[in-house]
Design a binder for these strands. Structure first.
Lengths: 157, 157
DNA sequence: GTTGGTGCAAATTTTTTGCACTCAG
DNA sequence: CTGAGTGCAAAAAATTTGCACCAAC
C-alpha cells in the first residue's frame, strides 16, 4: 500500500463520511510528487492538468482547505500575493523573507523550540507553527542599505 | 509641540520631499487617538469621517503603507479578512489567535527575545517582529475538543 | 439511493492603479 | 511653480459561494 493510500485511509477513518474522490487523490498525488515545494493553488491545478485531468480552481481550494484542517498541509503567506500550501513536514521548516530583496531563506524548526515551550507553559496555548514566514532584512540588504520606504513590495508594482 | 507634530517633523526630516498633508495628519491623529487598538483601513476612514472629513479608501491605504514603510505602524493579518494596522509600540505586543473559537490573546514581546537573538546571530537576519499573530488552539478549546475540521474560519462563513 | 463532492459561473472582498487635478513647500 | 499626494472610478487578484448535477459508498 502506497503512502498516498495510507494517508487517504487515515483521513477516512477520522471521519467516516469522508469520500475519497479522484480529485482528492490527484491533489494529494501532486503534493506528494514534490513534497518539499511550496504549491500555490494554481500550481496544484497545473500539476494535475498534466495528468490529463482538469480540476476547477474552487475544487482545488476546497480540497486544500480540507487538507489544511486535517493537518496534512500548511498554508502560508510568503508575501507573494497568493498563499502557498505545503505538506506538513516532520519536522516543519520555516522561512525568512527579506523585505528589501525578496530573498527567501530556509530555517530549521529548532529556532521555534523555545517559543513553543513558552507558549505551552506560560499561556497553555498550543501553537500551530508548522510553516512560518518571518519578514525582515537579510544580511546583504543590511550591508547595502537603501531608503526605508524602498521596499521589495513597492518594487513588485 | 504635540507628539503628532514631532512625529510628522521626523518623517519630513528623513525624506525632505515628504509633504505633510491634511490627510496624513488626520490618519495619524486617528491612530494616536487610540494607540492600543488594531485599526483596519475602514476603521481609520470612519474615524476621520467623524471629524467631518471624508478620505478616499485608496488614500488611507496609501498613507498606511507609507507609515508602515517608515516603521511607524505595523500591518498584521489576524485572520479576520482585512489586515489591521497599529502604531508600532515600544515594546511591541503580539497575539495568539485560536483557530477554533477565534479568541485573541495578548502576549508580551519578551517571548520573542530568544528567537530574535537566534536569527540575528545564526542567520544575520534582522527580523521585523513588530506585531505578530501566532495561530493555534487556546486552553479552553483544547479542553473542549471539537472535530478537527470544525474551525473558526469555517464558522465565520 | 443518499448525501458529500464537484463544476460552473457569478459574486465578494480587499487592495491596487491610472490619471487628471490640487495644494504643500 | 512643480511634483508629491489625492480623489475618483475602474481594475485586479485571490478566494468564496449558490446551485444543479454526479458519483462514492
Amino acid at each position: 500500500m502506497s503512502d498516498l493510500d495510507r494517508l487517504l485511509d487515515e483521513l477516512r477513518q477520522r471521519r467516516p463520511s469522508t469520500r475519497i474522490t479522484t480529485q482528492r487523490r490527484l491533489v494529494l498525488e501532486a503534493l506528494m510528487a514534490d513534497p518539499a515545494r511550496h504549491h500555490t493553488c494554481e500550481d496544484v491545478a497545473a500539476a494535475v492538468a498534466q495528468h490529463g485531468v482538469k480540476l476547477d480552481q474552487s475544487t482545488v481550494y476546497r480540497i486544500l482547505q480540507w487538507l489544511k484542517n486535517a493537518g496534512v498541509v500548511s498554508q502560508t503567506d510568503l508575501g507573494s500575493g497568493s498563499d502557498v500550501y505545503a505538506l506538513a513536514g516532520h519536522p516543519p521548516h520555516h522561512h525568512l523573507v527579506c523585505l528589501h530583496c525578496g530573498a527567501i531563506i530556509d530555517v530549521d524548526d529548532a529556532i521555534f523550540a523555545g517559543l513553543r515551550r513558552t507558549l505551552q507553559l506560560a499561556y497553555r496555548f498550543e501553537p500551530r507553527i508548522e510553516h512560518f514566514a518571518i519578514f525582515g532584512m537579510c544580511q546583504a540588504c543590511q550591508e547595502h542599505p537603501r531608503t526605508e520606504d524602498d521596499t521589495f513590495e513597492d518594487e513588485m508594482a
